[in-house]
Amino acid sequence: MSDHMNETKNIMKKKKILPVGHFRGLGAWTFAFFIYLYVPIVVLVFYSFNSNRMVMNWEGFGISWYLKAFSNNNIQQAVLNSLIVATVATACATAIATIGALVLARGGSFKGKTLSLGLITLPLMVPEIVTAVAVLIFFSSIGMNLGLGNVIIAHITFCIPFAFMPIRARLEGMDTTLEQAARDLYATEWETFRFVTVPLLMPGIVAGAMLAFVISLDDFIITLMVGGAGSTTLPVYIYSMIRRGLTPEVNAISTVLLFFSIAIVTAYWIVSKKSQTKTVH
């Protein structure tokens, strides 16, 4: 995904672009845009440190709601569920995506190659609610009820395309003569894969995994539909908390989730950026 963004950036750099910076009032618009984008989040984070039990009545700075949230058994259970689901789904989705990317990039040309590529990335465009309903109907029609297992399977499904994209981008940009050089230096196909292909692909795999992890961690709709009692994840639990009334506890736990996601996305960004400078020679 960031590969894509960088590509457009490069294209824009090369072309002589309209110097929009000279238009009057543009700075103000940009400022308004960022306010629009971030004020709700800033407010959310701000009130998580409120010591009053009413969200909107500022009383004073305190971290009591964080302590409360952390000691809430239901939240602990939801966090645990979220981590289990995200970890297992990420591992499976990344493995499947890696194999898929290898087949598509290195399997030579085979019938239905373009179609397969389309089919792998299509779920990115399918409305989430459609996927959710489809998966729900599927599980109930085959009578599958594994609790958290159902959630994990559903998460693997929609995480695959997210994990797939950076891996494929990395693979496409990889110099195949490196693998030939390894074979020339007496490495068998397996050794070539193990000692050359995988290490070179690693930044793509890590980036794909991190993306899949964040997507899984933040998912709400599909999890809400598929997960039964006892398989509540953090986003679903936060939603149920809100229905019982807004307390700064919701703000606190949302803020924790926010910064956790930001941390992973930042790490993803650093990894993919690093891998890009490495491929240039």
Partner: peptide
């Protein structure tokens, strides 16, 4: 029993 020097050198970057 042959080895090759590639046009792009193919030095392993990692």
């Amino acid at each position: 029993p042959v080895n090759m020097v590639f046009q792009s050198y193919a030095i392993f970057p990692h």
